[in-house]
């Protein structure tokens, strides 16, 4: 819908995409409050990691970062700036030399910062002082892959701009210890039953709680797809279209649950057996394909 964030006639941006990686997008807090118009929330899937990048840089919480997928990305800054890599841990290099993950880095003009393939986890965030600046759509710079709002996914050679930096030097602020969570052996997702748990048989609900699920490679920013036992329905057919919440565990006719992430459709007709609380979704967004998944009743 909206083409690349930088109009063709704008001055060339200072941030050059050297290697876009498998899927790198601009992300921020998203567009809450527009679901009734058919607009998904979108925004960074791992909000704590995205927010940590902004805090380490002294950015406002609404600043945009780059969200990469599995293979990282490399960018050249044509202006001196400060950047940080958070989210899925990965080897970080600055002009080919190893640099720390999770710590603000001074980038001289013309230097190349590379976030390598994730050591574990899926989505790495690369933040810059002042944030990545693109034309906001409904108050957000987030790329929404379902509805095509926001800047297109990055391609090699793209030029983006930096936002206005705050006056204080981010490196002068007291460093925050970088959390480096251990790689989870399994993804445990709390689930609150409803609103359509009654569309499944008691056996179907039991299957959800006890079944051995794995993260499917078919997942994306719309939803975490799962492989494993199918859930038995009490009724066939579809519901009249109804609102879908973030974290909804929707069950299409094939019977395998999908956990809705930030770019999920706002209405739908397949029954939602339960809802995963928002706090558990960042971990879901970092679970690589093949990760075992267990649903547990939420307290």
């Amino acid at each position: 819908m909206t083409p690349a964030g930088v109009p063709a006639d704008a001055p060339v941006g200072a941030l050059e995409v050297v290697r876009a990686g498998a899927l790198s997008t601009v992300q921020d807090l998203g567009r809450p409050g527009h679901a009734h118009l058919g607009v998904p929330r979108s925004g960074a899937l791992d909000q704590p990691a995205h927010g940590l990048a902004n805090r380490l840089l002294g950015n406002p919480e609404g600043a945009a970062t780059l969200e990469t997928t599995l293979t990282g990305c490399a960018v050249r800054s044509h202006l001196p700036t400060v950047a940080v890599v958070t989210g899925a841990p990965c080897p970080v290099t600055l002009d080919g030399r190893p640099a720390p993950w999770g710590e603000p880095l001074r980038l001289p003009a013309g230097s190349v910062l590379e976030a390598g393939a994730a050591t574990y986890g899926l989505r790495t965030y690369v933040g810059f002082a002042g944030g990545v600046d693109t034309a906001p759509v409904l108050g957000s710079r987030a790329t929404d892959l379902l509805s095509g709002l926001g800047p297109a996914p990055l391609r090699d050679g793209d030029r983006l701009s930096f936002g206005t930096r705050r006056r204080r030097d981010p490196l002068a602020t007291s460093p925050i210890p970088s959390p480096c969570p251990a790689p989870p052996r399994e993804l445990v997702l709390p689930v609150v039953p409803g609103p359509r748990a009654d569309w499944f048989t008691p056996a179907g609900w039991r299957t959800l709680r006890t079944g051995d699920y794995r993260v499917s490679p078919a997942g994306n920013r719309v939803g975490l797809r799962l492989e494993g036992p199918t859930l038995e329905r009490a009724y066939d057919g579809e519901l009249p279209s109804e609102g879908m919440a973030l974290g909804a565990v929707q069950v299409p006719p094939a019977g395998l649950p999908v956990v809705f992430l930030a770019d999920h459709p706002v209405t739908g007709g397949y029954p939602v057996i339960g809802v995963v609380p928002e706090e558990a979704l960042p971990a879901a967004a970092q679970a690589v394909p093949g990760t075992p998944v267990r649903f547990v009743p939420a307290d």
């Binding site: 809450p32 409050g33 679901a35 009734h36 009249p240 279209s241 109804e242 609102g243 879908m244 919440a245 973030l246 706002v266 209405t267």
Partner: peptide, 15 residues
């Protein structure tokens, strides 16, 4: 409330 999303025969309140 963050979202008020009408459906065919429902209204979803989120947040």
């Amino acid at each position: 409330v963050r979202e008020i999303v009408p459906g065919a025969r429902t209204v979803l309140l989120e947040g």
